[in-house]
Amino acid sequence: MKALYSFFAVIILIALAYLGITADMTTFFGLVLPYIAAAAFIFGVAYRILIWAKSPVPFKITTTCGQQKSLPWIKNSNLESPHTTLGVIGRMALEVLFFRSLFRNTKMSLKDGPKIVYGENKWLWLAGLVFHWSFLIVIIRHLRFFFEPVPEFILLIQSLDGLLEIYVPVLYMTGVALLMSVTYLYLRRALIPQINYISLISDYFPLFLIMAIAITGALMRYTPLRVDIIKVKELAMGLGSFNPVVPEGIGAIFFIHLFLISVLLIYFPMSKLMHMAGIFMSPTRNMKNDNRMKRHINPWNYPVDTHSYEDWEDEFRDVMKEAGLPLEKE
């Protein structure tokens, strides 16, 4: 049901874009909205980060996933339980670039006996990694539309991506990988009962949206819906250099693609997609496990009512005296 809502939301978005283009609103979809979307994305993400940053980090609550630094002859794990800044950077890099924590994932099953078995389960890790990396490379490849001449490294990535040299025009591996991984991410939500149970509309929506973006992109490149790439570049360069023009005769499919990207950019800051920034600020991962070496300051550490020794002794003086315990006041 929730998946259906999200699916139709994306269909409606596509229909909206199509209607808009046929009603000759190309300036809005090609220029105005992309600018709005870019601004919403940049300011939205910055705003969310600022809001997070406004709340202090009162305690150093590192989740330690390895041996602490203690005695010199005990080997500590500076990547899983970092006590230096370098260790934290390393831990974060492993997390962001290779999804370290997800790599630990196992699948529990209960067998007769009873016996609980923890099996390897790297599919989510693999699909997640493929999804994020291929998305990143697709985005980098798209930068070619914004530069003339196109920088070397973009060309390099592009040619590596098309290394298989199948189909004409050359098939980009990351495009295929992106679609496959996003489909897997959807299927596991649809088919695994527990994941299905926890999934919200806002979990399906970005999946369908990204799927639609990838599909419209592929249609433009590999099918008769092909658009005039020179004109697309003209538009992109115009947007990038703040000299916007909408060339005549770009197919509607391009504007649908662009519209969905604009929607994704606008949606991004108000959604769970903010995990992209949040991971860097997650206190269990970005803090050192050096708690006893270096005092952490809590900015709102207010005084509280404790039971002082003096009051305590006052209350128990008689029994203490009888038991022969030392007293401050006789």
Binding site: W52, I192, I279, P283
Partner: peptide, 19 residues
Amino acid sequence: LDKYRSFKIFMDICVRCGA
């Protein structure tokens, strides 16, 4: 939410991956 960044971030960024 105003006192604990942890709490605020943990409220916002879960993607419900189910790991």
